[in-house]
């Protein structure tokens, strides 16, 4: 870290990096569940590609988290050997896939947020963070282009596709607010110039999402209610099942090399 900024306490930085890595890890898991089951072959390819990018980002964020923590844990150890309460991802990314529209709406809401965030992180005072953001932002921009296009097409498409996309938006809206919630970790990170305050991302996100929803002829839900807890380890019931599946081999055969 450069010397001219306030140092962040290791544990704070570790927790903040877990949030980034856990978001991409859990979302990647969800997206990868589509493999072989998408509506058209092009979508099978695109979904696998998205999941793959997210895994790559996970490896970068979680390896850095492990390095910062300094206890010898790497991305795999962190992904496979923590229980749900130690996960720091947003609740949004662990929500079940639902139909294809639901999956793509979740992706869009996340992609819009991730793009805004990564673009700010390119200017992080921590060069390691800036470096990862630089790499991930290119992928995230493509993800957004695609999920945005899909949301617009299906929102505008047929009566049925419109209804399904509106239902997806309504169902996921409760999980939007958490993305912009500031807490102690975020404030310490922002004070040190490592990352932005989540609340500062909202205007730009609103702009991206509002324009797309408009084009998609979808109605933004009139609610400020937000389900929260993911960032501090209080998750929905779904995360336990994700981890039970994801961590099965590492838990059943401890110490084995794969």
């Amino acid at each position: 870290m450069t010397g001219n900024v306030m140092a962040v306490e290791c544990n704070t930085l570790f927790n903040w990096l877990l949030r980034l890595g856990d978001n991409t890890l859990v979302l990647s898991h969800r997206v990868s569940q589509w493999c072989g089951h998408a509506p058209v072959l092009e979508e099978d390819i695109a979904l696998a590609n998205t999941a793959l990018d997210l895994i790559g980002q996970t490896q970068m964020w979680l390896n850095l988290a492990g390095e910062v923590e300094g206890k010898g844990r790497d991305a795999d150890t962190l992904a496979y050997l923590r229980d749900a309460w130690d996960f720091r991802n947003l609740l949004l990314v662990e929500r079940p896939n639902g139909d294809f529209g639901h999956t793509m709406m979740r992706q869009f809401l996340f992609d819009a947020w991730q793009n805004v965030l990564l673009n700010r992180l390119k200017d992080s005072t921590d060069p390691r963070v800036a470096d990862i953001a630089e790499k991930a932002a290119k992928e995230a921009a493509y993800h957004l282009e695609r999920s945005r296009g899909t949301v617009i097409a299906l929102g505008d498409g047929t009566e049925e596709s419109h209804a399904r996309m509106q239902a997806a938006l309504d169902a996921l809206w409760d999980y939007v607010g958490e993305m912009f919630l500031d807490d102690q970790v975020d404030r310490a990170i922002a004070d040190a110039g490592v990352g932005p305050l989540p609340s500062n991302l909202r205007d730009e996100w609103d702009g991206i999402v509002g324009a797309a929803l408009n084009e998609a002829t979808l109605t933004r839900p009139d609610s400020d209610f937000a389900q929260t807890g993911g960032k501090t380890g209080r998750h929905t019931e779904d995360l336990g099942y994700i981890l039970a599946e994801m961590q099965f081999l590492q838990r059943a055969y401890p110490g084995a090399t794969w």
Partner: peptide
């Protein structure tokens, strides 16, 4: 394929 029908139709309509 069947669950995806509405997606393909929606895309085409758009």
């Amino acid at each position: 394929w069947e669950d995806g029908a509405w997606v393909r139709e929606g895309m085409l309509a758009h």
